[in-house]
Amino acid sequence: MGSPLPSLACLDCGKLSQGSRCPACATARRRSKERQRAAHRPSPYQRGYNAEYRRNRAIVLADGPCCFVEGCTAAATTVDHILPLSLGGTNELDNLRPACRRHNASRANRLDWEA
């Protein structure tokens, strides 16, 4: 087997670690970046997820309990905007389709879903 990784001084606290930061400092740094990112993100309402969206989401999920992706057997727990809100889409029923969390998150704001 190979030799163990050399110990390095953490860039933040100076403790010896296997990477550039010790686990505690790495976790603190990640959480700090997540807080900064969240502070700059508009609220769901400001991004277009209003009462109309919530009402139509319930209708779509009741009508289509399965994910829209062919071959996916996961239950639809979210709705996907066919034309994303960020690209001018709406919360109307004809622009929403049922999706599992995995496929909805992986599609992001692209126009067509790609595997």
Results as ranks from 00 to 15, higher is better:
20 S>K: 08
21 R>F: 02
22 C>F: 03
22 C>K: 05
23 P>G: 04
25 C>W: 06
29 R>V: 04
30 R>A: 14
30 R>K: 12
30 R>G: 06
31 R>Y: 13
31 R>K: 15
32 S>I: 03
32 S>Q: 12
35 R>A: 14
37 R>D: 06
37 R>V: 02
38 A>C: 04
38 A>Y: 03
40 H>M: 10
40 H>P: 00
41 R>L: 13
42 P>L: 10
42 P>C: 10
43 S>N: 06
43 S>Q: 12
43 S>L: 13
44 P>A: 15
44 P>V: 11
45 Y>F: 09
45 Y>V: 13
45 Y>P: 02
46 Q>T: 11
47 R>Q: 13
48 G>K: 08
49 Y>G: 08
50 N>P: 00
51 A>R: 13
52 E>Y: 02
53 Y>R: 06
53 Y>A: 04
54 R>K: 11
55 R>I: 02
56 N>I: 02
56 N>E: 02
57 R>K: 15
57 R>W: 04
58 A>D: 14
59 I>D: 02
61 L>S: 05
61 L>F: 04
62 A>V: 02
62 A>T: 08
62 A>M: 08
63 D>C: 07
63 D>P: 01
65 P>V: 09
66 C>G: 00
67 C>K: 04
67 C>E: 01
67 C>Y: 00
68 F>W: 03
69 V>K: 00
70 E>Y: 03
70 E>S: 11
